[in-house]
Nucleic acid binder design. Structure first.
Lengths: 124, 124
DNA sequence: CGGAATCCGATACGATACTG
DNA sequence: CAGTATCGTATCGGATTCCG
């Protein structure tokens, strides 16, 4: 078994982690997965993120082909909706699994309130 | 459904990605999972990593409780072996799943040689 | 063998003000 | 509404040298 291929650029696990590298990208992906898919909505739901950084992270996800911008052609108030691309959809399941792992990883750290939210998010 | 809890520190998906944040941490975890578990071994298998950075990343994984240092009490040539902790073991399956995702994510990007290596790694 | 210490440059992140 | 533009800070990764 050779690991010489596992440099930072070509290792598969790093392929994943570099795709979602960035303090907010994972959250943003998760939000978009759940239709929190507009700039102002994300600003509301993500505390303490600046406009600049939000823009940067979204652009990063876009240039990695995980999301795309749907800019509606209305005049006055600009409307932009973000969606997962086909590539991004392939991440959905993995993202969900990571959240499930987070819930069982350190059970005492999960506040009850959060458990309820997550249960209602994923149960159906 | 509320997402107000999904700040960078408490979001579960970010809990994961911050644990393994760092250019080499994912690879190092994977190597240790597969018993490439000594400083010099890792230096060989990870191209272009410096001693300093390797040390830092290992210390990071250690202080996050994912690995522990087993420093053998031999005299002259120091021997240190890294192992997964119980906490780290809980990541093993997820790490493997991410690698599998990587293999199917962009099939044309996977060189045949790599496929064989991965097949033999995981088949049994 | 397995580090520690120092220095340095490149990003990444953040606060703020302005705009089509 | 959904961004730019500018500036400042901090953290990270890398090269090198020295050590028990």
């Amino acid at each position: 078994m050779s690991f010489s291929h596992f440099d930072a650029e070509h290792c598969f696990i790093n392929k994943f982690t570099t795709l979602i590298a960035g303090k907010w990208k994972p959250i943003l992906l998760y939000l978009i997965q759940n239709d929190i898919n507009r700039f102002s909505l994300m600003m509301e739901h993500v505390p303490n993120i600046s406009r600049k950084v939000l823009t940067e992270q979204l652009r990063g996800l876009e240039s990695d082909g995980l999301i795309y911008r749907d800019e509606l052609k209305s005049k006055a108030p600009k409307v932009v909706i973000y969606h997962l691309t086909e590539k991004g959809e392939k991440l959905r399941q993995l993202v969900d699994e990571i959240i499930r792992w987070g819930m069982t990883y350190d059970k005492e750290e999960v506040p009850d309130e959060m458990k309820k939210i997550l249960d209602s998010d994923f149960a159906q």
